[in-house]
């Protein structure tokens, strides 16, 4: 079983027509499964507790647009990187006071993040937003809903995902990307500590899919820009 937070397009989301988890990560895992002979099944779970769930063997792996960090490496093992991204800022259209991530710590701005993500860390550290001004959400969709309703001033999250939300019909007239990515992060697939069989299999499959251009093909399909 593979744990994922399926509110994170274009990497994973629920297709309302089929109620299936779709996106870059499930597509990539399907390609990997063909190469190393595994039968993957994705299950939606909360991102906030996803690594604890993996460590306690509720999942065999976590594939959920996960940034490889030293802190997470204490609990789980990671594959080689398969996508590089950066944190970006989204604000309401017409908000002239937020022109880059450096403005987020000013004017008592309320900044929305998803709990337990590197976006939360980036808002607190790199952007320097006071903890009291960081509003934490269980999923990024709720943060976008609050931004559109003017309940917060900005969102910090992974670049491809905020670009995806910003382009959705529901949000494209209300919100806009601000500035460029201000961090550099690598996504990896997490496995239980010591599961070398799965880790080596994933790494071998990823290497093959990088080499044959399949990962680049999927990035183009899902408009993921690094």
């Amino acid at each position: 079983m593979i744990g994922t937070d399926s509110t994170y397009p274009p990497f994973e989301s629920i297709d309302p027509a089929t109620n299936q988890i779709v996106g870059f990560d499930p597509d990539l895992m399907a390609e990997m499964a063909k190469l190393i002979n595994i039968k993957p099944e994705f299950k939606t779970t909360s991102f906030d507790t996803i690594f604890e769930a993996l460590a306690s063997k509720q999942f065999d792996a976590v594939m959920s647009a996960v940034t490889i960090t030293d802190e997470r490496k204490q609990k789980v093992d990671f594959t080689d990187p398969y996508v590089s991204i950066g944190q970006r800022v989204v604000a309401l259209k017409g908000n002239d006071k937020i022109k880059s991530y450096e403005d987020l710590k000013t004017n008592n701005f309320q900044v929305g993040v998803q709990r337990g993500t590197t976006g939360e860390q980036a808002a607190l550290t790199t952007a320097g937003v006071p903890d009291a001004n960081v509003k934490r959400y269980d999923d990024i969709a709720s943060a976008f809903a609050d931004l559109k309703n003017n309940a917060i001033d900005a969102i910090v999250a992974d670049g491809p995902t905020v670009a995806n939300y910003t382009g959705q019909p529901e949000y494209q007239d209300a919100v806009a990307l601000v500035g460029d990515a201000f961090t550099t992060e690598d996504y990896g697939i997490a496995v239980q500590k010591g599961d070398t069989e799965l880790l080596n299999g994933f790494n071998a499959a990823l290497a093959q899919l990088k080499q044959n251009g399949k990962i680049d093909e999927l990035k183009r399909k899902y408009d993921i820009k690094e």
Binding site: L35, N37, K39, D60, N200, A204
Partner: peptide, 8 residues
């Protein structure tokens, strides 16, 4: 490439 024998 390793073969994981249909591991779920």
């Amino acid at each position: 490439l390793p073969d994981l024998n249909g591991r779920a």
